[in-house]
Nucleic acid binder design. Structure first.
Length: 107
DNA sequence: AAGGTGACTAACA
DNA sequence: ATGTTAGCCACCT
């Protein structure tokens, strides 16, 4: 099982209506300091998978997409559609982590 | 084979 | 509080 597959697996565990950070995904996948590599994995997600890629954001609560095939606006609207309040602030979309961050140990 | 890059982050200054 | 630095690791020249 390669790194990408582990990342998929962990991201699939993020419940609807919550978000996780890149570092968090990396740690759960068994690569505690590989947040950047997680970003690469997400960038390469194929279309039409059941992986909720939109639920992964930066540790500061910002959507870190800039000029990719899936723009930040798309991620924001996907999050909003499942109840996560993503608001545009100074050009970037922000999410209240205190409220929406996924706690893997808590139900 | 080796070095640069990046959907990152925690630690400093 | 804001800016910089140094790790991290998979990809791509």
């Amino acid at each position: 099982m390669n790194f990408f597959e582990k990342v998929y697996e962990v991201v699939r565990r993020v419940p609807k209506g919550r978000v996780a950070t890149y570092g968090q995904i990396a740690a759960l996948a068994g690569f505690p300091r590989s947040a950047r590599a997680v970003g690469m994995a997400l960038r390469a997600f194929p279309e039409g998978t059941d992986v909720p890629w939109q639920r992964v954001i930066s540790s500061k609560g910002y959507i870190s997409i800039e000029n990719f095939e899936h723009p930040a606006e798309e991620q924001a609207s996907l999050l909003i559609a499942e109840g996560v309040r993503a608001v545009r602030q100074q050009g970037v979309f922000r999410v209240n982590l205190q409220k929406y961050l996924w706690n893997p140990n808590k139900k």
